[in-house]
Amino acid sequence: MLIGYSRISTQLQNVDLQHDALTQAGCEKIFSDKISGTVAERPALSKLKEILRKGDTLVVWRLDRLGRSLKDLIEWMYYFEKEGIALKSLQESIDTSTATGKLVFHIFAAMAEFERNLIQERTQAGLSAARARGRVGGRPKGLNEDKRKLAVKLYHSKEHSIDQICGMMGISKPTLYSYVKSE
């Protein structure tokens, strides 16, 4: 049986392209996740793993839909081989039911990890360049400096409970504690 798996990383992405390709490839069932490929535990993928049986073929639109790290993809490959399950990737034209397909799988898995590492390097370089220009990333502070000092003062005075201080200032407990810690 051909069973499809699709994955998108964000709610803004659309899974239709993958579903159409998997349906056209003859998949009888399709499982979908909306989660990053770097997350190992994915609900639909876990359910899919329970359903796959010897002789089945897992079909993905691209290898990076199954996993972004070489280690994860190779672990999946070992699992598939042990269970007698084939893997087919439509975009890379990989079919691990053949020796050539297995070789090509390992080459493309290495390339997927290389691409992920390049993205991380570019992101870090961009952040470093922004910091060098004086830009600070992250979330904006919840309170201005005067209100932060007041919240810390109220905390140290011990006249109000943590819940009262947070309610008055409109902040969460972790935010209050981070203000106290930074003072």
Rank of each mutant, 00 (worst) to 15 (best):
G26T: 04
I162F: 07
F80V: 00
I3S: 01
S128A: 15
Y5Q: 00
G4S: 03
S172P: 04
E159M: 07
I94N: 08
L90H: 03
H156P: 01
A44S: 13
S172H: 12
V15K: 09
A130E: 04
M169N: 10
V104S: 13
Y5M: 03
V15L: 10
L63A: 00
S32A: 00
S9F: 03
N117K: 11
E75I: 01
F105S: 05
K34R: 14
W61K: 06
V39R: 15
D72M: 07
M168K: 06
Q11P: 07
M168L: 12
M77P: 00
S157W: 06
M111F: 15
V136F: 02
R68A: 08
R62P: 12
M77D: 13
I35G: 03
V152Y: 05
F31Q: 10
V59D: 07
G84P: 06
V59H: 08
G170P: 04
L48F: 09
S89L: 01
D16W: 07
I3E: 00
A109D: 11
E28N: 05
R7S: 06
L2C: 07
K141Q: 13
S178R: 14
K141D: 11
S93E: 14
S97T: 08
I35E: 07
I51F: 10
E75V: 02
T23G: 04
N117E: 14
G138R: 05
S89W: 05
W76D: 06
I162W: 07
G84E: 10
A25K: 00
T96M: 09
S97F: 02
L127M: 14
G101D: 09
S9D: 06
Y78C: 12
K88H: 08
Y177E: 13
A129L: 08
A130V: 01
S97C: 06
A151H: 12
K102Y: 05
G142Y: 10
A151L: 10
G55C: 08
S157K: 10
D163E: 14
